[in-house]
Design a protein around this nucleic acid. Structure first.
Lengths: 243, 243
DNA sequence: TATTATAATCGGTATAGACCACATGTTGTA
DNA sequence: TACAACATGTGGTCTATACCGATTATAATA
């Protein structure tokens, strides 16, 4: 278990949280194991029990640990519900199904949009790349997506590399950013004229509106995508684990 | 603002949390308002600041309040559209978010429906339990779901145990079936008269239609649910891992 | 008047200690 | 042996206090 540095500017509870998390991930503490008691951890690291509690609180809240009063704190076997986002796996999913798919880049430019920056927990003045893509299956538009990336993370991003590579491969390989998880929200919408035109459907048709936030291991939002799906022909499908 | 009863068996932080939440809901504290400082709240209720902090922590975590160091704690405007993950257990999700929820069992009976059985990869003549539930958040209908279970797997399933327990808990604990994963599909729909009536919204409103197949470790479909979600107030949200 | 220091106030972190409720292992007794 | 009583260890709650860093209001200065 990693030591705690009292002279570090990082809060003690934060260091301890990371230390425990690390021990869980490296299997030093395995699923089902009982952690040292709060009092033991406090004594070991020479910090107060309340500080230990704060670190454990966070990990319990995030599902990594389970507390049992009178008994101890244990490593959880809870895994975040796993699912395949149609956005992420678009390429893979299409190949698996043997469908003809294409992606058209409608636009790629730098912008500054305060609302988007706020959603991404960035400074309102942050420069962003905006990538608008239309995805087609069997030559029929299926998905229209707007992706935003902070310029600071993605210097030298060029349109032509986006033409030929999956965005997620670029993020992970060229920029060496390890994406950890993503949150997504779906709602039903009526497609307005602008969207309907791009997707070659009639205005007023039903569609799905989708927002996705992809995060790195420090829970910083790396990528934000908003997208419209056609509601016919193909369904928005995903799977997730339950154990 | 509601007083705190030191003789109550309820924890002080819990009482204070409820008190603040109540004050927010009754507009005693309106969106954007600054709350009394932690020190003021502590003095007013004659409790320690750490206890106030714990109450505020929870409300900040649930999105009701926003803290600004050096400035104060404010009522958030985010609570209007809260995100709900339907994929995990509804019960668990609601408790985590600290929302008031109820489930009404509209009907529970045995049926034989060939189309449903076919979807579940069962013999068309298989007897099925059909469970119709209406789920409410803060007393507003949010989700109307129809769940089907094969009678063979769930002998002795009674309505009253469904009233008091999460279905997933019953499946796992009473019937000892380990659910492994699920597939889900979402599409946008217009709520027809029958559905809209049950959900207390106007006919013709937008909603989400959701189908879910839960499988055990042998990839047999144990549970099939079709559901309608209201498209306002709460968003359909989910998380997935990327690594 | 405009700017710059200073003070006051806010939440953020941390401590040491206290008592409670719950779970479990141990011990003494029937 | 079986059971009840007890001791112990665990997390749950709570206090009073302290100092830090960020923000804002106020006062001093140019």
């Amino acid at each position: 278990m990693q030591e705690i540095n009292k002279k570090s500017p990082l809060p003690l509870y934060y260091q301890l949280k990371e230390s425990i998390l690390n021990a869980v991930k490296t299997k030093e503490f395995e699923v089902g194991d009982r952690l040292p008691s709060e009092r033991e951890l406090a004594e070991y690291h020479n910090i107060s029990r309340m500080t230990v509690k704060k670190a454990v609180d966070i990990l319990v809240d995030n599902g990594y640990l389970i507390r049992k009063q009178g008994s101890g704190t244990f490593v959880s076997d809870y895994q975040q519900s796993y699912s395949i986002s149609p956005l992420l796996s678009f390429t893979k999913e299409m190949e698996k199904k043997g469908l003809n798919y294409t992606t058209r880049i409608l636009s790629f430019n730098k912008t500054k949009e305060k609302k988007i920056a706020a959603k991404m927990n960035l400074d309102p003045e942050t420069a962003l790349f905006r990538l608008e893509r239309l995805r087609l299956i069997e030559n029929k538009p299926f998905l229209l997506e707007n992706t935003y990336l902070a310029v600071d993370y993605f210097r030298d991003l060029k349109k032509d590399e986006l033409e030929n590579n999956s965005l997620f491969k670029i993020i992970e390989n060229k920029y060496n950013i390890q994406l950890s998880n993503a949150e997504a929200e779906v709602e039903a919408v009526i497609l307005d004229a602008g969207i309907a035109d791009k997707m070659q459907v009639q205005e007023g048709m039903l569609g799905l509106y989708f927002e996705q936030f992809s995060k790195n291991e420090n829970a910083e939002i790396i990528e934000y995508t908003s997208a419209y799906y056609r509601n016919d022909n193909y369904k928005f499908k995903f799977t997730f684990n339950l154990d």
